[in-house]
């Protein structure tokens, strides 16, 4: 049961089953959706998907890191990272409950 990995192929299959487009087009649309989310985040814009969660881009300042193996200090350059904040709906579904069924 647990331990399986879901990939793009499974997402296309779900789209194919639910919307009734061809398999090729379903796969293409999965790419388009992911691509659009990536492009938006790349511009630094937040992506909020209700009942799923939101992806936020954060600016990290420079700090001093350390190579854990050698102990040598190395500067970590300022960079942009992306964080995912799951919605309450997602959290409760994953915990097997539907108490907070917001939709």
């Amino acid at each position: 049961m647990a331990g399986k990995t879901v990939t793009r192929a499974d997402l296309s299959e779900a789209v194919y089953q639910r919307v009734g487009l061809s398999r090729t087009e379903s796969a293409q649309l999965v790419e388009t959706v992911l691509g659009e989310i990536c492009d938006t985040l790349e511009r630094g814009e937040t992506v909020k998907l209700s009942s799923f969660g939101s992806f936020v881009v954060r600016e990290k300042g420079e700090r001093i890191g350390r190579n854990p193996k050698t102990g040598v200090e190395v500067p970590i350059e300022p960079r942009r990272v992306m964080v995912f904040k799951p919605s309450n709906v997602m959290k409760s579904k994953i915990n097997g409950g539907d108490e907070t069924d917001d939709e």
Binding site: D10, A14, V15, L29
Partner: peptide, 9 residues
């Protein structure tokens, strides 16, 4: 389509 993707995840 978008919901199918998110729900599957």
């Amino acid at each position: 389509i978008v919901n199918a993707i998110l729900d599957t995840i």
